[in-house]
Design a protein around this nucleic acid. Structure first.
Lengths: 126, 126
DNA sequence: ATACGACTTAAACCATGGTTTAAGTCAACA
DNA sequence: TGTTGACTTAAACCATGGTTTAAGTCGTAT
């Protein structure tokens, strides 16, 4: 099993070391081992878990939601039902967010096309 | 021309009155008129502008970005080129955000399908 | 005329998600 | 052996985006 230092984990996920320490403190990266000098060792399992944390973060799940999920992962198989329900709910939340952004983007596209015309024709408006 | 009170604007866009006041204070809603008692009057133009502000907010443009845009709107036609450039850039930012979310959603879908199987079969894993 | 509801302000407060700082430890290399 | 670089901690600090509070004003219905 290969281990990563915090700087390697930071580089691989392009996340500041300070953020990784913050995530550990918040309970998003539990059970991280240490070497003899107290330095963090990220196992492959931890790197996979970090990847999951980042997926959830990328989809705007709040820290305490991610923590709940991680707590359930640590708790074991008995929480699979809860995790499944959480992921299904989260997926719906994310799809709604994407829809809202996509819809709002139409308003932006409308401005782009209006401004594109106006720039050459010299007209007025908001 | 019909005018809206702050409570009507709040209801129409489903935004708290406190947030509308905050936006005005931040310069996102300039030139809002007042009645004899000092109460805000939202004209149709202001409601249209508020709609634009909300579009930009829905797509996660920071307040100071929205303010810059609004400042340019107020400044007039000479800023159409700047506004066009801003909206084009913003569109790319939004598309990138949507891509990241969509991509991260795949990791979530993977968990959903794994957990769905595991729930009936009793297996182990993260 | 008075009480109510809707509005006003400035300022304080809050949550979220980090980032930065200060002081210190340790391993390895010159 | 001593200095350098990577790491450690706790705590302070910061930005963003509001929300809440306190105190007061106005118009209208009773």
């Amino acid at each position: 099993m290969k281990y990563c230092s915090i700087s390697e984990a930071s580089a691989q996920f392009n996340i500041p070391e300070s953020t990784l320490r913050y995530y550990e403190k918040k309970g998003l990266l539990p059970l991280i081992e240490r070497d003899g000098a107290g330095r963090r060792l990220f196992s492959e399992d931890q790197m996979a878990l970090l990847n999951t944390v980042i997926c959830l973060k990328n989809t705007n799940m709040p820290i305490r939601g991610i923590k709940q999920y991680i707590d359930w992962v640590v708790e074991g198989d008995s929480t699979i039902g809860l995790r499944l329900e959480m992921m299904k709910n989260h997926k719906q939340t994310v799809l709604a967010e994407i829809s809202l952004m996509t819809e709002s983007l139409e308003g932006i596209d409308f401005k782009i096309s209006r401004y594109t015309k106006q720039r050459t024709q010299t007209r007025s408006g908001e």
